[in-house]
Design a protein around this nucleic acid. Sequence first.
RNA 1: GGAGGGCUCGCAUAGCGGCCGAGUGCACCGGUCUUGAAAACCGGCAUACGAAAGUAUCGUGGGUUCAAAUCCCACGCCCUCCGCCA
Length: 419
Amino acid sequence: MIDIKFLRENPDVVRASQKARGEDVSIIEKALAADEIRKSALDQFETLRAEQNLLSKSVATAKGEEKATLLESAKALAAKVKEADVKRTQCEAEAKAFIMQISNVIDPQAPIGKEEDFVVIENVGKPRVFDFEPKDHVELGKLLGAIDTERGAKVAGSRSYYLTGVGAMLEFALVNYAITSANKAGFTPVIPPVLVNPSAMEGTGFLGQAAENVYHLEKDDVYLVGTSEVPLAAMHMDEILVAEKLPMRYAGYSTCFRREAGTYGKDTRGIIRVHQFDKVEMFSFCHPDQAKEEHLRLLQWEKDFLNAMEIPYRVIDVASGDLGSSANRKFDIEAWIPTQDAYREVTSTSNCTEFQARRLNIRFKDNDATKAVATLNGTLVAIPRMIVAILENHQNADGTVNIPAALQPFLGTKRFELV
RNA sequence: GGAGGGCUCGCAUAGCGGCCGAGUGCACCGGUCUUGAAAACCGGCAUACGAAAGUAUCGUGGGUUCAAAUCCCACGCCCUCCGCCA
């Protein structure tokens, strides 16, 4: 949710932001108009209410005939108050509905444009040149006894898979390495709930445009989270954080569930795009003035991870049209996937400034004022895509796979052998 | 799933339908006193919107009433017991 005051004072900035995102610009006039109506309805209600409170008090002390007369006018006033109250509630809901549709104001440094208009910030490492025909991760997964997509489909449908043997071991190693390094860096490790209530889902902004991608269990009215960003962000919902403790950093490990509606043709092979996967997510609550620096720090931790995995990658500055509605800037890291001859997204970090915290009502005391904190999130490791990157980049001609040095202590071996 | 009990300002509690935005104790902050501290004493101490007046908030939502922390209903959460269960 954007700051209504900011909107009132800087409608042009918000308008430009909406335009850059390719989103509805007219919503701004609607929101402002609705807000005016809201204010006057509120004012009317409050004036009437004040009158009623006063009158009610005089009823209490009045006696006999006087009381009867007062009661009569009080009754009439009560009806008017009720009417004004209904109207106020209505106007508030309408104003809020418009305001909620406005996305976060983009960072002026974010590239303007559509999905393909991202800017490459840097390339790290060089795509490996193979002196043999590299196999894709599905084939390697079979040879190593690591990934079984066929049985996954049999048991759970498309976009499902089993990680078996070294595949499962690799997940544990990745999670271990990620959590251990995050813990060292000062993150509090968290295993959050993945089944959350509507207010958590709503507050984090996943019931907007992203709604069709979340699983909803109707019978119990709970949602399966698509990322631990949801329970991590909602963790401090309705709280006032201690300023001295900021930034508060959490590393959440959880399973993520995604319906992947509308992606029928995309990435149907392998485990690049699946309905369920595990992920270690970084989440930070910080002072709004610190958000930009914090964002770069999250990016650095992501890079550190990729470097440790010895995988070539590039960092992109995501274009305005491809930002989530809560983010004002987003950096993606794309790992080189040899058999696709392309860089593919493996991690992503977003600066949500105060946008998400405002919705979730997460604040801190800044001197005397109570203000919304800034929230930021970033992937440390999303398991399946990392497995894809590792298997494909570190494969040998015979289908065995070399294990990056950083993971060796967790696996007790230097190479995955054929089964 | 069944039967009870409870949800009030950081914590613990008080609260008669109007005098309750709400008392008390503890904690906390400022001061007096003290060489310093403790104790004692004095003062302060919820949030949001608003320039202010004011309005709203006693788990949440509805209802009754001129008037609701207080009465009624629904829901949520916590606790105890029974059943089931990793």
